[in-house]
Computed example of a mutant assay.
Amino acid sequence: MEPPDRRPRAERARQIADVLRQRITAGAFDSGPLPDERTLVAQVGATRNAVREALALLRAEGLVERRQGVGTLVVQPKYGHGLDRLAGLAEALDGHGEIVNEVRAARILAPPPAIAERLALAPGEPVVHLERLRRLGGRPLSLDTTYLTADIGVPLLGHDLAGRDLFALIEETSGRRLGRAEVVVHAVSAGPDTAALLEIPPGTAVFALDRLTHLDDGRPVDVESLHVRADRLTLRATLHRGSA
């Protein structure tokens, strides 16, 4: 017989919430409500009070909601975006709905020195600056700020920036293949302007992705800063262990 679990209930609830969150983001409950409390108690091996606290944590995150006579439902699906392949958002979310880009800026300018340095440009050398609010299913998903070297970016200005991924357009217009990208992911609090555009309360946690993309010859051509609604997207990768 196993000894009783003497951990604080708040700790058990947190760990149960982690398990349920993983199942939700994996799509386990897309077709209907979560199992009832009695079933969840049996599945996770916890008390009903701990399960109730775990569900309360998920409700506070905005991940689930309780509906009278129905049960606990996933509020909205989270879409998975893999980090182990260089792909545009529309490519990564193919089959989940139409991605529409609201182009808020598309211009040629002299970049900030830090951007010029990352793109290996001389000071004052022009770049193409794009800002796009990206929607999935009509709802905001991310706010993307992009700086492109002029030879790559200028040809894009005459193309469908509202309906196409930049990566595909870059390869089409340049005749070159993209090679690799370095990506850094932060968790940040959305400021008032970003929050208003993404239609979330100010201070809400969002993913901030910094990405530097290179052509297949190694030349850096694309610096991006993406603010992504963390309640709508999960970041996934398949990692292989190799030599240190």
Score class of each variant (00 low, 15 high):
residue 146 T to R: 02
residue 226 L to A: 15
residue 95 G to R: 06
residue 162 A to V: 00
residue 171 E to W: 12
residue 75 V to K: 08
residue 111 P to I: 09
residue 175 G to W: 04
residue 188 V to G: 12
residue 126 P to F: 11
residue 71 G to W: 14
residue 188 V to L: 14
residue 167 F to Q: 14
residue 57 L to W: 07
residue 180 R to C: 08
residue 123 P to K: 01
residue 82 G to Y: 07
residue 124 G to L: 11
residue 240 H to W: 15
residue 236 R to F: 09
residue 22 Q to M: 12
residue 85 R to D: 15
residue 211 R to K: 09
residue 59 R to Y: 02
residue 102 E to L: 10
residue 224 E to R: 15
residue 62 G to L: 02
residue 178 L to T: 14
residue 170 I to S: 01
residue 117 E to G: 11
residue 145 T to E: 13
residue 16 I to M: 01
residue 89 L to E: 09
residue 50 A to D: 00
residue 235 L to N: 00
residue 187 A to C: 12
residue 94 D to V: 10
residue 150 A to I: 12
residue 122 A to M: 07
residue 123 P to E: 00
residue 24 I to R: 07
residue 80 G to W: 06
residue 121 L to V: 03
residue 83 L to T: 13
residue 7 R to Y: 09
residue 200 I to A: 08
residue 102 E to W: 11
residue 241 R to T: 03
residue 14 R to H: 12
residue 190 A to W: 14
residue 25 T to D: 10
residue 168 A to M: 02
residue 148 L to D: 00
residue 230 A to D: 05
residue 231 D to W: 11
residue 175 G to P: 05
residue 134 R to S: 03
residue 109 L to W: 05
residue 223 V to Q: 04
residue 50 A to V: 01
residue 120 A to E: 14
residue 149 T to W: 13
residue 42 A to S: 10
residue 70 V to Q: 13
residue 191 G to L: 12
residue 130 L to S: 05
residue 145 T to S: 13
residue 45 G to M: 07
residue 151 D to Q: 12
residue 87 A to H: 14
residue 147 Y to R: 04
residue 216 D to A: 05
residue 14 R to Y: 12
residue 123 P to C: 03
residue 217 D to Y: 07
residue 43 Q to N: 05
residue 20 L to H: 05
residue 146 T to H: 03
residue 174 S to Q: 08
residue 73 L to D: 02
residue 225 S to H: 13
residue 103 V to C: 01
residue 179 G to S: 02
residue 128 V to Y: 04
residue 197 L to A: 14
residue 140 P to W: 10
